[in-house]
């Protein structure tokens, strides 16, 4: 559904954030971009979302470019509107389109992320994990074709992160949502990804791709094997540098 060919991003100062990114994302993928901080992962998401333009290469949408609201975006911070309730925050994408069912849909979506009882709560009264759930509900309410997530769980504790990772897998499978997920955590990549793309430090290039059946359980051997493979790849990258 999305193809990148030789995509490059050079900033005004001359810094090259991304070089020669060639990649195809298929419907139903949960593609994880794994790399160190500053390797241009977030920049790549912004390019895909159309919030920024590449300085080289092509971004193509074989099935047609997404319309407004067909891309869901989850930022590292929950970035909720502090003056609005959880439900109003979730309803936002539909409300911007003048959809009258916005609030009703928002309540349903909050139920799906386990926050049915917190619809009228303001963001500041919610915990970090709950705020992130609201943010995910907001991204999913417009049933996006593509969900972009920029290190959404990086600021959460391990316990909360595990629960949210499980919930995310459940939700994306249920909604059939194609996802690009950016992280710098090897373990997160190993658990979530149907495909994992390891990136090099600046300028960000694709170092290696890992694919295979999605992991079902953290105690499964396949998960450990993936972590091991990623660790080896990372070490090889560090030795080469």
């Amino acid at each position: 559904m999305l193809s990148l060919a030789g995509v490059e991003k050079r900033f005004d100062g001359g810094t090259i954030a991304l070089a020669d990114i060639t990649l195809a994302v298929d419907a139903g993928d949960l593609l994880v971009l794994l790399g160190p901080s500053g390797c241009g992962k977030s920049t790549l998401l912004r390019l895909v979302a159309g919030l920024d333009r590449p300085t080289g290469g092509q971004i193509g949408w074989p099935g047609g470019a997404p319309a407004a609201g067909e891309i869901g975006y989850v930022f590292q911070e929950a970035t909720l509107m502090p003056w609005a309730t959880a439900a109003q925050n979730v309803a936002l994408p539909l409300r911007l389109r003048g959809d009258r069912t916005a609030m009703a849909e928002a309540h349903k979506m909050l139920g799906r992320v386990g926050l049915a009882d917190f619809a009228e709560a303001r963001p500041k009264t919610l915990s970090g994990g709950m705020r992130m759930r609201v943010s995910i509900a907001r991204a999913l309410i417009s049933r996006p074709k593509l969900l972009l997530m920029d290190e959404p769980f990086a600021a959460l504790d391990e316990f909360t992160r595990h629960r949210l990772q499980d919930d995310l897998l459940h939700l994306t499978r249920e909604l059939g949502c194609t996802t690009i997920f950016v992280t710098h955590s090897l373990y997160e990549a190993a658990y979530l990804g149907s495909r994992i793309i390891l990136m090099t430090p600046r300028p960000g290039r694709i170092a290696e791709e890992f694919a295979g059946a999605p992991v079902q359980d953290r105690l499964e051997h396949a998960y450990m094997a993936r972590v091991e493979a990623l660790t080896r790849a990372l070490r090889a990258l560090q030795l080469a540098a």
Binding site: L51, A68, Y73, T79, A84, L92, R95, L96, R97
Partner: peptide, 23 residues
């Protein structure tokens, strides 16, 4: 980030002012 979110959802300039920037 909120401005980006409004852009992604095709918000008009008026919506951006009244629903986001003013509050």
């Amino acid at each position: 980030e909120l401005l980006d979110l409004f852009r992604l959802n095709g918000a008009s300039r008026t919506q951006e002012i009244f629903l986001l920037r003013l509050p």
